[in-house]
């Protein structure tokens, strides 16, 4: 039965259902229980934003607080994954990637290939991404392109609670290392979510809005900006298709090609910095594979090549807006 659920609660429910289903699923992270060893409440936080609240009461010591040592515990989750467990590790913010990246890209990502196909590393690393929290340069980044670049990692970045639940369940069941990116500005966003467990396969983009004049490709929060832009453009008689990539590695380019072959126009929206971004990657593939389908030069709408600023007025300018997306669509329509 479907009922309205927030993105945050959908993540919680996915973890809960998988921990109930599979005894080898464990979870670890900084403050994911919260208060371990402290004089007050044992299950005080349930994650820094309360995403895992209540899971300790149900699953006990299968949820483990960790010391502030991302290299050690992300690595331990990866090691445990090769030894029969199916761990979920929370890297509080993907911005902390630099502290523990070696364990992710030199270890987890490469075991299967380096070891000639003999290893499986079924680990899920959940991390908050994205801006809008006034959290400044080290807690707001969209670092998805960096991890998408790495062969051996899978990268997921849902735009809504329904996809978050189904994709997180798939991530936990998946036998490869998955980086599951949760946009913190979507945590409160609610949609209908079934109570029962379901998995959404990787590599299947979702057409968030159908349209015939131009194709807007986005993921995460940017799907909402793209859809807002599309609704506004519809008032001017411009009918946009919005494609939500949902997973960045693997990536469903077939759905993008099919749409661009029909519309002839491509706009890629990415909250990441512009160089070597998901937007530039999608644009390059479309240009190489179906160049003759294009009626106009593809347009990229991204954050600027700067760190994320603190001051709200600056951060609002930093994150791509629906207006910028609409302007980019109009630019493609002019030719």
């Amino acid at each position: 039965m479907a009922r309205t659920l927030s993105f945050k609660d959908a993540v919680n429910e996915a973890i809960d259902q998988e921990m109930t289903r599979d005894p080898t699923v464990i979870m670890m992270g900084e403050d994911i229980v919260g208060g371990t060893g402290s004089p007050g409440e044992a299950d005080a936080w349930g994650g820094v934003l309360g995403v895992t609240k209540g899971l300790y009461a149900k699953h006990g010591d299968r949820l483990m607080d960790t010391p502030l040592s991302e290299s050690a515990y992300i690595g331990a989750a990866i090691g445990a994954a090769t030894c029969g467990l199916r761990p979920i590790a929370e890297l509080m913010f993907l911005d902390f990637l630099g502290v523990c990246f070696d364990q992710m890209y030199n270890q987890a990502a490469k075991f299967r290939y380096m070891f000639g196909g003999k290893a499986e590393t079924p680990v899920t690393i959940r991390a908050m991404v994205g801006g809008g929290f006034r959290a400044a340069a080290q807690h707001s980044q969209m670092l998805t392109p960096i991890i998408t670049h790495v062969p051996g990692l899978k990268v997921v970045c849902p735009s809504n609670a329904y996809d978050a639940k189904g994709l997180l369940i798939q991530s936990i069941r998946d036998n490869d290392p998955v980086i599951f990116c949760e946009h913190k500005n979507l945590y409160a966003h609610e949609v209908d979510v079934p109570e029962e467990s379901y998995a959404i396969p990787f590599g299947e983009a979702n057409i968030a809005r159908e349209g015939t004049d131009a194709t807007i490709v986005a993921y995460g929060l940017m799907v909402h900006r793209a859809t807002e832009a599309a609704e506004n453009l519809a008032k001017d008689g411009i009918d946009c298709e919005v494609i939500d990539l949902r997973t960045l590695s693997p990536i469903d380019m077939d759905t993008v090609y099919e749409s661009v072959e029909s519309t002839g126009r491509l706009i890629c929206v990415d909250e990441a910095n512009p160089r070597c971004s998901i937007a530039s990657d999608v644009t390059a593939s479309v240009t190489q594979e179906i160049f003759s389908s294009l009626k106009a030069a593809p347009q990229l709408v991204t954050a600027p090549h700067t760190p994320v600023p603190f001051s709200p007025v600056l951060e609002d300018l930093y994150i791509p807006s629906a207006e910028q997306v609409a302007d980019a669509v109009r630019k493609t329509m002019a030719t």
């Binding site: 690595g75 331990a76 090691g79 090769t82 030894c83 761990p87 270890q107």
Partner: peptide
Amino acid sequence: SPLACGAGLAA
């Protein structure tokens, strides 16, 4: 070293 911790945790 972290990987060995993971092996110990799994055990």
